[in-house]
């Protein structure tokens, strides 16, 4: 494997100071991710560089940053896929920055909480099985893939000019629970979706769907949510299809029995 040098251009931020671009030459080999590159900088060049990271497999959502002008995950992006000369790294836009590549995501978490992102149902307790058909599952499954990395929020042009806009991630979460066949919370959730910093402010730039690393497609969720709200207004909104009736399964005959107990109970 041959290494080649790629320049990492990083937007540094220290509290109370002006931002500064800083450049680091990084020896890159095929298969190396942006996250690996940052790690190399930290270990060999500048231990003060700060960013979030954890799972390194694109599922924890920690390492969201703007890579060559596009929000994405550092762990998920291979350096040589995007450039063999230089790449630029910035903290997620539309968020305050704590330090270097560490954005303050609290505003997103707060907005997420405000749309009641949980199942609102009559019966929350109990251990009797519930039923849901694969079709009912598909109705919302895609929108539950969200890893809360903030890439969509950073890409959203409405959020850029209206910091109070709920944004793609919370709106998608609202739709995800609205469309769950086990949920009865539509009426409660629509209260928080009504004001003008909310869903009516999305004009389908679809940037969120373009940058989402997990295929969640927030733009799609938001348009469905709009349709549901309109249909609800004229009394035509339908609940997700009927709950399937389970059939008694056929017992399997290839399952062994547990061996007899060999310890005598006192």
């Amino acid at each position: 494997m041959t290494d080649q040098t790629v320049t990492f251009r990083v937007r540094r931020h220290q509290p109370g100071q002006e931002d500064a671009w800083q450049e680091y030459p990084v020896a890159v080999h095929p298969g190396m991710t942006v996250l690996d590159g940052l790690q190399q900088i930290k270990e060999q060049q500048d231990s003060s560089l700060a960013w979030r990271h954890s799972c390194r497999m694109g599922i924890c959502g920690s390492c969201g940053m703007v890579i060559n002008g596009q929000p994405g995950l550092a762990c998920n992006t291979q350096v040589l896929d995007i450039s063999d000369r230089r790449i630029s790294l910035e903290p997620l836009s539309n968020f305050p920055v704590a330090r270097d590549l560490v954005p303050d995501l609290e505003p997103m978490f707060d907005k997420h909480r405000s749309i009641k992102p949980f199942l609102i149902a009559g019966q929350q307790d109990g251990d009797e099985p519930l039923r849901q058909s694969p079709r009912q599952l598909t109705d919302y499954l895609q929108f539950s893939y969200c890893i809360k990395c903030g890439a969509c929020m950073a890409a959203c042009p409405t959020l850029a000019s209206d910091a109070d806009f709920l944004g793609p991630m919370p709106l998608t979460a609202a739709h995800r629970y609205n469309r769950d066949s086990r949920d009865d919370g539509f009426d409660q959730r629509k209260q928080s979706l009504g004001d003008h910093h909310s869903i009516s402010h999305c004009h389908y730039a679809a940037e969120c769907s373009k940058v989402c690393p997990k295929g969640v497609d927030p733009a799609k969720a938001i348009q469905y949510l709009k349709r549901d709200l309109v249909l609800d207004l004229v009394g035509l909104r339908r609940r997700p299809g009927p709950v399937p009736q389970g059939s008694p399964g056929t017992p399997r005959d290839d399952i062994p029995k547990a061996p007899e107990f060999t310890v005598k109970k006192p």
Partner: peptide, 11 residues
């Protein structure tokens, strides 16, 4: 804010 897609510029 970065590179946008076609729909982003239309927006």
């Amino acid at each position: 804010g970065g590179r946008r897609g076609l729909e982003g510029y239309l927006y």
